[in-house]
Amino acid sequence: MHELAICQSLLDQARQIVDAHDANGIERIIVQIGPLSGVEAPLLAQAFSIARSAAGFPNAELEIETSPIQVRCQQCGTTSAARVNALLCGSCQSWKVDLISGDEMILKSLILTEQPASLSGPLTRAG
């Protein structure tokens, strides 16, 4: 279950970005996970729902984008889709291919909530 460790690393990074931008909190975290990243999206989502409160972002939502496995053949130059344990050229079946998509484990972006102007003063309006 290394997804929890990865999730904590993600939340640490998010915390530093929140502080650097003097933001109030996080509305959404958008990550990109490829099938060859070694991270299981459902486990990451589960870890996130556990870890977000302790990290101080109880309302943050995690959006996981997946990326397709794509390879480019070194022999014939074709770009094609491939399976996780058969990274072969779709045209000539060669295994001499470069992975061009599918191993991503990336924090893409954050949507931060701004610091309300009245935060340090008394509450002046309801809702």
Binding site: D12, L107, L112
Partner: peptide, 14 residues
């Protein structure tokens, strides 16, 4: 009241 920050770094940046 929100702002979007593009990061593009590894989840295991640290």
């Amino acid at each position: 009241g929100t702002k979007s920050i593009e990061v593009l770094s590894s989840l295991l940046h640290e």
